[in-house]
Each structure stands twice: as structure tokens, then as C-alpha cells.
Design a protein around this nucleic acid. Sequence first.
DNA 1: AAGGAAGTATCGAACTTCAATACGATCGTG
DNA 2: CACGATCGTATTGAAGTTCGATACTTCCTT
Lengths: 281, 281
Amino acid sequence: MSTIGGKSSRSGQRATAPRSVPKASGQVSAPAVDDRLFLQSVARAIDVLEAFAQSPKPKSLGEIATAAGVNKSAAQRIGLTLLSRGYLERADSGGLMLGRKLLDRSFDYLRSNPLIERALPVLTDLRKQAGERTDLSLFDRTTIIYATRLQSKRETFYATLAGRRIPTFTSSGGRACLALLPDPEVDEILERSERRPMTPKSITDPAKVWAKIREARRDGYACSVEESLIGEIAVGAAISDSRRRPLGAIHIAGSLSEWSVEDFRRRFAPLASEAARALSG
Amino acid sequence: MSTIGGKSSRSGQRATAPRSVPKASGQVSAPAVDDRLFLQSVARAIDVLEAFAQSPKPKSLGEIATAAGVNKSAAQRIGLTLLSRGYLERADSGGLMLGRKLLDRSFDYLRSNPLIERALPVLTDLRKQAGERTDLSLFDRTTIIYATRLQSKRETFYATLAGRRIPTFTSSGGRACLALLPDPEVDEILERSERRPMTPKSITDPAKVWAKIREARRDGYACSVEESLIGEIAVGAAISDSRRRPLGAIHIAGSLSEWSVEDFRRRFAPLASEAARALSG
DNA sequence: AAGGAAGTATCGAACTTCAATACGATCGTG
DNA sequence: CACGATCGTATTGAAGTTCGATACTTCCTT
């Protein structure tokens, strides 16, 4: 997957009306841009970086070219440029891999997001009080992104990393966010979502997801049991802005080996809801 | 700060020998690139993103242009391109701010780094055993980057975020890394480091830093007291590869309000060292 | 009402980028 | 040991993509 239009997107007709550039793929959310203001080489550099999302192993220039959908010359130019800036690094094998500089940018992002700054002390207290993993997620339409994760025990690798995305409709916090939206918008998001289940227990049938969302509207929080990880239960409560638009959610996650579904909900749902309310404006 | 050559870096002489492109600024570590394989527009797009490092607030196109050292037209093109890909977002104020997609890239990076995957369970156990904050940092010559942070109590905002950089010579883990390097290389790193103290207690005098490094060579770990944050003590032990080159370090950090320097060292230095040894190969 | 700043849009020039190609080195295999 | 396949690297002519100045509109501030 990569930019669609292949060859030359902006060629030939110079005096035409503004054409919009098609988005890469996947989630359709970012705004389109007038053709003549669109920088092809920048977009392709992004394609190269994003090519590592599928498999983040070191790649040769040829592999990069294939994965990013550019020719070898472009891979060479882009690769060397990103290398010189630290966004790619040389692997011991000689190939190119993602570079440490990427961490700097995400640090800047985290630092720039006021919600995260406000939420962190609340999350910390919550984790201490609950004794279970506590996450802050950011709502991004069809997916949510975990921005901060405070684990309490040993967790799976992916349960500890910030930046991970999960379909909104399978996650407790995501459903809590959906519960704040008007019906048509929920439908649109469900429509656009990739309906592949993360676990055998994932609820993917729109009707059943809708039932969970209505439940969340009633209760003020949402719950998911083994829908993103077998053996895990989570409750989530949405954080909203002043116009009650969802910004993200607070999650509390625990293990079914230690809790019954009912006990977990009873105990932690109020904590999550209260924390989320404190952060909403 | 941005690319140096201002106007046209690669103009005129087509048939010249390869010239290297000067690095942007700051840390000199990334390799230079042959002029003719260097993508100016990609580099400028990076400049734009990096412009938010100084102050991550939303910026107008004019502010971006100034901060990144490009003209307004370039800021417009780059800004819109990055916006269309989600690496910038529109702020409520109308300006542009960093976008959530940045988190995806750093997630890919974290996921791609085998050390991090191996270290996380070790770190988790260590945090549980120590009951104090436990960090994994990556060695990057003049600076270290915190890649994973497992807090135990309420911490300052910056002590919780991954991606943060700190001068190698002030950090416990950084000094433990330096202790593995040959003398001239240490000198070179100290030379290149920005010697601005992070706190009044920061040791910046090269001779005194060297004393700490020798101490680390003797003990197998390093210690820093209030050098990056007032009231904080930390011990760090280096993780090395098969050739004993430093890859990063394990840090254990606690509060001076709860520990004396000696007690803290005695108790946690062995834990950090053992964990680091387990991860070295 | 004037002045300023912001976002947006346009355009011709030409510099930067493009893609094909070539070269030397390495590697694994027949 | 030679062969073919890939790798990273480097070069080149062509032209398309990018450049930067400029202008327009809108919105605030003074």
C-alpha cells in the first residue's frame, strides 16, 4: 500500500482547477490538499517511514522501494536523506532501520498535548488507587491511540508501549467515546472501521457494538472483556471537551485470573468515570 | 536554526565532486550525504517538525517559517503536506500543531528495537522489586534517550515521558555507558556535549565528570545525585552488546526525601547492575 | 478606516528531483 | 571457480516538481 496515483500525480495540465490529492490508504481522516501545494517528495519520504509499520525490521533499499511503493532511486535518495537526519539508522546487517530521532518527535507531541499533561497526575493516582494498569487513550475516529500507559504488573509487550492503535469499536475507552457522539457519526465510524476481530471474543457485528454503545450511554462508561487481549478485562470512561466532544479515554485494565467481570466493573468503573470527569471540561 | 546554506545549496556547478551537506545543528552524529542524493524538501519538512521542539505550541504558517528557517511559501507547502498525512494537525486556534501520527512512528521504532523488547520484562520485575522508578535509556553519544519509563509514584511530568533526552554526562546511566568507552572517545563526547547544567548540582567540569566515569569503571555502575532533577537520586548500569559497546542503560531513580545517598546506592546499585548484565550480550 | 497578520491561491522560472543506468563488491550456489 | 543475483553507490540528461515572490481575501486590532 502507498500513494495511489503511481507515476506522476501532478503532471501535464498546469492551468487546471485545484485537484485534490488522494489519501494514502487506511483511515480516511486527514484533509486533502490542493495539488499544487502538495510536496511529492515529502509524501514519499513519509511513505518510506510508514513502510516500516508493517514489519519494522531492517530493510535494504530494494525492500524499502517495494514496501513504500517507490523505485529504487527514490528509495536511495529518501533513505539517505532520512539517514542523515537520524530518522533512519544503519543496521548492523547494513540495511536501514527506523531511527531514534522518531522518539524525539513523539516526545514533542506528548509534551504539546495539554490533555496528557493534565491527565498524568490523575492517571498516576488512579493506578495507585486501583492497583491495575491505567491507560490514557486519544480518540482518533476509527482508532484510538494509547498515549500513556502505567502498568502495575508484568504485561505483554504491546500492552506497555505508547503509540499503539486499536480499533475504537473494540476498546472500552473507544466505545465510551463513541457513546458521546450523535448516532450518524457513530454509524459512519463503524462503517469505516476495519472489522477484523483482534481476538475470537471481539465484538464486530455493528448491531452488537451498538448495543454496547447504548449501554455505555446509560452507564457513563464502557467495558470490554477479552476483546483486545485474551484474559484481559477493561473499563473505559471518556474524556470530553467543553462541547462534549470526545478527546480520549481513561482505561483501567486487569486480568480475569484475578477478577470476575462483575467485581471488576463494580470496583473500577466508578474510579475511571470519576477520573475522566475530572479531566473533562 | 536550520539548513545552513540558505539560498540554493546545490546550484550551479553540476559536474563537481560530491559535496557533503552540513548537518542542521546540535548533536553532530548523523552521517553526511552526497549533495546530489539529498532531498532538500524532505530535509525542510523535517526542519518544520523539529521547529516544534523548541516550543511545541500551535504555530501559524509565519511562525513556522521563522522557526524552521524557511520562507512562508515553503511553510505553506510543507505544512499542508504534513497536515494531509496527519503529522500536523489544525489547532482550535487555527494554527498548526504536531499530529498524532508521530506517535505511530515512535511506536514502530520501539517495536523494532530488540533491546526494548528484551528489556521490558526485566524492567517490570525490577520496578516491582525495587519499588522505585525504573527507566531504560538508549545511548546516543552526547545524549541519552529515555525509551521506557516505569514509574512507581507520582513523578514530574517530564520524568514520565518516553523520548526525553538528557546529556549523557549528567545522567547516571549515561556515565555508565561512557565508562565502557575508550578514553579518547569519552573525551570526544564530552567535548561535543553542551555543558549547560540541568540543575545547580549538575557536574559539568570535564575533570570532575572524568572522576565519576572512573568511579563507574571501578564499580560497574554510576550514580547521579540531583544532577538532572533536584531531590532525585539515580543509579545506572550500562547494557552492552557482544563487543562491549554501550547500547543503553538501566536506571533506578528515587527521592532523597526517602533515601540517603548511601542507602540508595547500596540497595539499588546491585539490582541495576544485575539487570543490565542480564540484558548485555 | 487604516494597518497588520493570517490563510489561501497563482504563476513563471529553473533548480531540484526524477528514473534509468552503470559500477564494484559481496554472497551463495551450481 | 565462475555465474547470477543483490546489494550499496554513483552519474547523468531531462523535465517535472519545487521554488519564492506576489496577490487576494478575511479577520482583528488600533
